[in-house]
């Protein structure tokens, strides 16, 4: 009996404290956002990044931070979710509580966003997705999705292979990205679509987890279990670079004995392409800052924006890489 009252008293104290804390939070943040609104016409934008897992992501972060500056009329709050959804949801909630004008984020995973997006909608804060999409039944929860078309990227890679080796029987091995991730699923699908109906065959496909070490180890296995691999299709540059090491260790020449096609076009990949170790790279453009700025301005001004904005991706052959390399931003 006594114990129960203690418990109840404890809960009561806790909830009072929590309420006080909450009201303190909302009090301070509402005054802050009032300042933002009346002081000038800068747009307060909260951005939650996936993490810093690859060279691509680092370039993406830098571009967003360099574009959404105060000179360009933005007040950017940036946070890194370290590849965890709960961190990202927490960041989004705190941005909603701060009363930002626009929310933007690259979702770590596809599902589980409905609740927090609904909160944003209730608070009348428009949401913009970058790089990766969310899987939701209610499209009205976000304004726009800016990013590359992963299926298209895979298809372009496949198309290049089909165009260049259409009359040959080609044995291809595939280094997939992280199992279940959108880029891995879509790039695989696009590639298969493009080579359908030709004599090009994907004889083996394994995940290298988008990392160099993964790419290298899986490629070693492939080289041991298949005699005459003609071409490697890697879902990103890093795995392709790992494959190069494995191929060289097996005494073969990457780019000649075994051709390599990858996606991303980060600096190291482009260098390998220019050096003749990779044969073709489809770019996955990380420079989303400008599109994001434009869409954010439109949304705040109340103009309508397109639901899906596809970022222009380039593609490079070895000669083109040599020319493009000096001017690359990432």
């Amino acid at each position: 009996m006594k114990r129960k009252t203690f418990l109840r008293a404890g809960i009561a104290t806790l909830s009072v404290a929590a309420m006080a804390a909450m009201s303190a939070c909302s009090g301070s943040s509402s005054s802050e956002s009032a300042d933002d609104g009346s002081g000038s016409d800068t747009i307060a934008i909260g951005f939650s990044q996936v993490g810093a897992e690859s060279g691509w992501r680092a370039a993406n972060t830098k571009d967003i931070q360099d574009t959404l500056t105060e000179e360009n009329g933005f007040k950017l709050s940036f946070s890194d979710a370290q590849q965890k959804q709960e961190n990202q949801i927490q960041a989004l909630r705190s941005y909603i509580a701060q009363g930002v004008d626009v929310l933007a984020f690259s979702p770590v995973v596809e599902t589980g966003w409905d609740a927090v997006l609904q909160e944003a909608k209730n608070a009348n804060i428009p949401v913009i997705l970058t790089d990766r999409a969310v899987d939701t039944t209610d499209d009205s929860l976000y304004e726009s999705f800016i990013g590359s078309d992963f299926v298209e990227e895979g298809q372009r890679a496949g198309q290049w292979v089909a165009d260049n080796f259409k009359d040959e029987e080609l044995k291809v091995v595939e280094l997939q990205g992280t199992t279940g991730s959108a880029p891995a699923i879509d790039r695989k699908e696009g590639f298969e679509k493009a080579i359908a109906g030709t004599d090009i065959k994907v004889v083996d496909s394994q995940t290298g987890d988008f990392t160099r070490a993964g790419g290298k180890q899986v490629m070693e296995g492939f080289l041991n279990s298949h005699d005459d691999i003609d071409l490697v299709f890697a879902h990103n540059d890093d795995m392709g670079l790992g494959a190069i090491e494995a191929i060289e260790a097996a005494g073969k020449k990457p780019g000649e004995d075994i051709k390599i096609v990858t996606i991303d076009a980060v600096k190291d990949g482009m260098q390998a392409l220019a050096d003749g170790k990779i044969n073709y790279i489809v770019e996955c453009n990380p420079l989303l800052g400008e599109d994001l700025a434009e869409v954010a301005k439109k949304v705040v001004a109340g103009e309508s924006v397109e639901k899906r904005i596809v970022v222009e991706d380039a593609a490079f052959t070895q000669e083109e890489a040599e020319k493009a390399l000096p001017d690359r931003k990432y």
Partner: peptide
């Protein structure tokens, strides 16, 4: 085990 997975061609989904 990692080599076996690659050699046997076990799908990444069930690795």
């Amino acid at each position: 085990l990692s080599l076996t997975v690659t050699v046997l061609g076990i799908s990444p989904l069930v690795t």
